[in-house]
Amino acid sequence: MSLWEYANPVKFLGLSERVMPWLWGFAAACLGVGLIWGFFFTPDDFRQGSTVKIIYLHVPAAFMAIQAWFMMLVVSLIWIIRRHHVSALAAKAAAPVGVVMTLIALVTGAIWGQPMWGTWWAWDPRLTSFLILFLFYLGYIALWEAIEDPDTAADLTSILCLVGTVFAVLSRYAVNFWNQGLHQGASLSLDKEENVADVFYIPLLVCMAGFVLLFLALVFYRTGTEIRVRRTRALIAREGRGAAAQVEGA
């Protein structure tokens, strides 16, 4: 039993059929519990008032926005090195989810920033970095959409993901240098800085777990969809050559 066995599309579909109900279930449970707990049963922060409740969306979304890109990087590398189709399709499947996470982080950040900093948007390094990450996601998805041949698209987007990662990190340092910023330092780390008290910390962890599970469920489901698109394409190509390119939803 090797992990690579699941690089076979059929095996992967079988695995995801078995795993997905659990993922969806736990994701819904964690998100439900975490968000309700955070929204209804946590006290207001003495400085930030009730806006502190936004943390249960903002921080997990920001976390997942970065993790989604990181996951795309890993599966892109797997595609480049081992040529498993499932991994290329998983990268394609994850990108729109990453976009949504980035968007949530940006929007909740803006809504939070308005009462706290008195402005919807500041060219703060963290906000700016997320905006740049958002642009990278858009470019990545646009490249997937623009290329017809699936293997060519997988190759090109993988290299773009690699190069993009380097430049995203460079940009992060560049904007740090460029503007020192208003944003508080990372308010969440494993050793629990004092500015996040237990009352906030535990529901936040539950929400983080919920976001991770939701992301996994979505990626599994969407990868399955991409595999089915390819299978449909292959079946049609076998049926009559030439009609292959026009698979709806491809």
Partner: peptide, 27 residues
Amino acid sequence: ALTVGIKRGGLLMSLLVLPLYVPTLIF
């Protein structure tokens, strides 16, 4: 090179290239 095979790839190329220009522009 990324967009060479794409018809009307100019706009897509701008979308791909401009984020890569950020660090150079900033410094």
